[in-house]
Structures are given as C-alpha cells and as structure tokens.
C-alpha cells in the first residue's frame, strides 16, 4: 500500500517538474508551428485567408526574390560554416596544450566577441568597413588593394563583409565546445601515439578528429540552423534592405519583409518559413549520414 503510494507520488512529481516547460512549449512553439504549416496552404492578404492548395508553392518557383534569398542563404552557409569550424578546431587544439603560456588570456580574448550583441557588432563593423574606413586604409597601407573597396555597396563584397562579421562573432563560441570536449580526452592516448612516433598532423587527423566527431557534428548542426536563420546581421549591416539589390537578402529577412513590411501575406511567408524547416531537416540528416559513413570507413 505504502509502496503504491510512493510510486504514485513519483509519477505525479515526474509530470509536475516538466509541466511548466511543456505547457509553455506547447503554447508558444508546437501550436505556432502546426498553425504555420496550415497557414502555408492559405492565400490572401492580412487575416482574410482562404485555402489555396499548392498556390503558394507555385508562387515560390516564380518568385525571383525568394530564389535570390535561397541562393544567398546557401552561399553564406557553404562558405562560412566550414571556415568557422576549421578555425575553431585549430584554436581549440592549440589552446589545449597545457605547456602553452597565456592560455587563459588567449581563450578569453577569442571568446570575447560572443558577448557583443548582434546589433553592437553590426554597428562596429559598419563603421570599420566604411569606404574611407580603417579596414580599407589598412589594406591600402599594406598594398593589398590599390583603391578602396566599397564593402557594403558592392554585391560581392557585401557578402564577404557579412561572412567576416559572422565568423568574428561565432568562432570563439564554437571553440569553447571543442575545448571542453578535448579536455575530456584521455591524455595517455596521445602519449602512446607520440612514443610510437605518430607525427602531429596524423595525431590530429586520426585521434583528435574522430574523438571530437560528436561535438563537431553538434556544432555543425547548430551552426547550420543559425546560418539558415540569419537575420540580425544582414538586417543591420544593410539597413534592413538586404541590399545592394537583394544581394544579401536571406530567407528570414524575406519572411520578415513579407510579413511586416510589404502588404502582409501570412500564408506565403509561412510557406517560405517551411522551406527553411525542410532545408534544415535535410541538411541535418545529411550531416548525420556523413558522420556515420566516416565511422564505417575508419573502423
């Protein structure tokens, strides 16, 4: 009798502890997601919506701004994520060496960009990348460029500036995950490899990378989601336009414009947002596949 009372209180407590979070997530996450899936099949302006079947999906294929936004988002993702992950790994491995001096100082310095708000660093970067600004002056003084680059005025360089800005902001953040994981690796494995005469790059390739694989996968997936949702930086560096001439417009920025700037078309913007969901799902799945594939090959 007492036993069943105890089991019941366990059961009730188990639900009570998770209930506030579940209620909030249900209301402010699951319900809106399901609703937006429903909305994506509706057409009309404002709240006057009617069922439109696949009309929104047809509109997607003929919408030049959507296609631009899709290409831009992919460009940011394909170029930026590998650069950032490589740099973060490199710094983490370098900082994991316990004989290195000033480790704490280097670690704090490289992590520091994460404390700035996306808006703060957009402002800082915008002023540094001005046409007569410090970046152009430095590059010209070093004779790397002959004339100033119009960083935010040129379609190509605007993309480069955004990629530089995101990499500056997020490399240290990813580095901390790798550092934490590296410190859990048993040092004696490295000692054994060194004694056996395995060179440094091979230790990195065949010991460090495989052991960090779960963390690398985790950070890659998180960064993928982050890049596909890119909004704040682009919005602020380009003054809310995604310009020049849509060269930096991203999917999230386009959804925002569709919903809150142009004549609100909730149904169509919901369709665009589900494109992001699908792309994230496909990419995460592929990343898991790639990670599993490597494991099979190496064993």
């Amino acid at each position: 009798m007492a036993q069943s009372g105890l089991a019941r209180s366990e059961r009730i407590n188990g639900w009570l502890f998770v209930m506030p979070a579940l209620v909030l997530l249900g209301l402010f996450m699951i319900y809106p997601i399901v609703w937006s899936l429903w909305m994506s099949f509706q057409v009309g302006k404002g709240m006057n919506l009617s069922f439109g079947g696949f009309a929104n999906i047809q509109r997607l294929t003929k919408d030049p701004v959507f296609i631009r936004a899709l290409i831009n988002t992919f460009t940011f993702f394909i170029v930026q994520v590998p650069i950032m992950i490589t740099l973060a790994l490199l710094f983490a491995v370098a900082l994991n060496d316990s004989t290195l001096r000033f480790r704490g100082l280097f670690r704090t310095a490289i992590f520091l960009p994460c404390v700035t708000s996306l808006i703060a660093y957009s402002t800082i970067f915008k002023s540094m990348f001005a046409v007569d600004g410090i970046i152009n002056q430095t590059l010209m003084a070093l004779h790397l460029i002959a004339s100033p680059i119009s960083w935010l005025g040129d379609p190509f360089w605007a993309k480069v500036t955004i990629i530089i800005a995101i990499t500056w902001r997020w490399t240290g953040y990813n580095m901390i995950f790798y550092l934490a994981a590296l410190q859990n690796i048993d040092r004696s494995i490295y000692e054994a490899a060194r004694i056996d005469g395995v060179p440094a790059w091979a230790r990195f390739r065949y010991l460090t990378i495989p052991m960090l694989k779960p963390v690398i996968l985790f950070t890659t997936v998180v960064s993928t989601i982050g890049t596909l949702q890119l909004f704040d930086e682009v919005f602020n560096l380009t003054g809310g336009t995604g310009g020049p001439s849509d060269s930096t417009v991203t999917l999230s920025l386009y959804i925002y414009n569709l919903t809150f700037k142009f004549m609100p078309s909730f149904g169509y913007s919901a369709t665009v947002s589900w494109v992001i969901v699908l792309v994230v799902a496909i990419l995460s799945f592929l990343q898991f596949l790639v990670a599993r594939d490597r494991k099979v090959k190496s064993s």
Partner: peptide
C-alpha cells in the same frame, strides 16, 4: 516522457522564422 524529450530535441532544429508569424497573430 522519454518520447516527449526526443520530440523536443527534434523541435530544436525548427527555426524561429517558422513560428514568428503565428506567434505574432
């Protein structure tokens, strides 16, 4: 609850943009 937790981890990958419009409404 284990099933619910697995569902939450799946939801982690859904971008905010997909909820933004219904949330605002």
């Amino acid at each position: 609850r284990e099933k619910l937790f697995a569902l939450l981890l799946l939801l982690l990958s859904i971008p905010f943009a997909a909820m933004m419009v219904p949330l605002f409404v």
